[in-house]
Amino acid sequence: MRISPLYRRPSWQRFFSGMAVGGAISWVIFLYIYGVWQDRHIYTIKKQADDIRELNNDILIWQQEYKEINKRNIEQLTVQKINIKITNSGKLNLDTLSVFETEESVKDDISMMLAKDIETVYKSKELIKKIIENKVVKINNKRYKLHVQEIVFYTTLSIQLEIDYDS
């Protein structure tokens, strides 16, 4: 096997040495460009990972707030408490203990309305009224009848009653 005599000509020597130097320079440029490109992508990926982590945290916070708001809305849309008030007890000279016991007895009679939604309670307002007005209360050996003066439907069911002698 024989090597061609082209290695002795200076023009070919310059050509081959130029190819070697050009290859080395182009390799260095390629490595530089590839390294810069990789740095940019690594930075972008890290930034996106941080954004995803923050957005996931925001989603968790929003979901917790959403659940709390739903829970509050459910509580607000149901009857939580019943208030009964007899307005004219002073007119009949009734003692406060008897009035309190009467209010508690009425509250016990309509306690089935607790934890019901307001719409259902509103639809059964006539039933509530009849339950209260058909009740005869015995205080100090006298019979009294209750009359509904006002009913307010909200998370607290407020009822104002008047008490009169039973005829």
Results as ranks from 00 to 15, higher is better:
residue 106 V to I: 14
residue 103 E to D: 10
residue 17 S to I: 01
residue 77 L to G: 10
residue 17 S to A: 07
residue 8 R to T: 13
residue 25 I to K: 03
residue 39 D to H: 13
residue 155 T to W: 02
residue 138 K to M: 12
residue 124 S to Y: 12
residue 44 T to A: 12
residue 26 S to R: 06
residue 153 F to C: 03
residue 48 Q to W: 06
residue 156 T to I: 10
residue 148 V to P: 09
residue 34 Y to E: 09
residue 162 E to R: 14
residue 17 S to K: 02
residue 155 T to I: 04
residue 103 E to N: 13
residue 73 N to E: 10
residue 158 S to L: 11
residue 99 V to G: 02
residue 16 F to H: 14
residue 42 I to R: 12
residue 96 T to N: 10
residue 155 T to Y: 08
residue 15 F to T: 06
residue 146 L to Y: 08
residue 122 Y to H: 15
residue 163 I to W: 02
residue 45 I to W: 03
residue 23 G to D: 01
residue 55 L to N: 09
residue 79 V to A: 06
residue 141 N to Q: 14
residue 55 L to K: 14
residue 84 I to D: 10
residue 95 D to W: 07
residue 89 S to M: 09
residue 159 I to H: 05
residue 91 K to M: 10
residue 166 D to F: 13
residue 33 I to L: 13
residue 127 L to K: 11
residue 24 A to T: 11
residue 43 Y to C: 08
residue 78 T to G: 03
residue 53 R to M: 00
residue 158 S to T: 14
residue 42 I to C: 01
residue 3 I to L: 15
residue 143 R to A: 13
residue 119 E to R: 08
residue 77 L to D: 13
residue 79 V to S: 01
residue 74 I to P: 07
residue 65 E to C: 00
residue 162 E to Y: 10
residue 126 E to P: 04
residue 69 I to K: 07
residue 106 V to D: 07
residue 10 P to T: 12
residue 93 N to D: 07
residue 156 T to C: 03
residue 84 I to A: 02
residue 90 G to A: 07
residue 108 D to M: 06
residue 94 L to S: 04
residue 75 E to W: 02
residue 151 I to E: 04
residue 1 M to E: 13
residue 22 G to N: 11
residue 17 S to M: 01
residue 159 I to M: 12
residue 96 T to Y: 05
residue 119 E to S: 14
residue 145 K to R: 15
residue 101 E to H: 13
residue 108 D to R: 15
residue 76 Q to G: 09
residue 77 L to F: 05
residue 57 N to P: 03
residue 30 F to C: 07
residue 10 P to V: 00
residue 77 L to C: 00
residue 104 E to C: 03
residue 35 G to E: 04
residue 143 R to I: 06
residue 90 G to N: 12
residue 75 E to R: 09
residue 46 K to I: 02
residue 151 I to L: 01
residue 86 I to A: 05
residue 125 K to T: 08
residue 139 I to Y: 02
residue 94 L to Q: 11
residue 10 P to R: 05
residue 24 A to V: 12
residue 65 E to K: 08
residue 65 E to A: 01
residue 161 L to G: 05
residue 39 D to K: 09
residue 75 E to H: 06
residue 26 S to L: 09
residue 121 V to H: 09
residue 114 L to H: 07
residue 163 I to Q: 11
residue 152 V to H: 10
residue 112 M to Q: 14
residue 136 V to T: 15
residue 135 K to R: 15
residue 103 E to Q: 15
residue 143 R to T: 12
residue 131 I to G: 06
residue 45 I to K: 13
residue 136 V to S: 11
residue 28 V to M: 09
residue 157 L to Q: 02
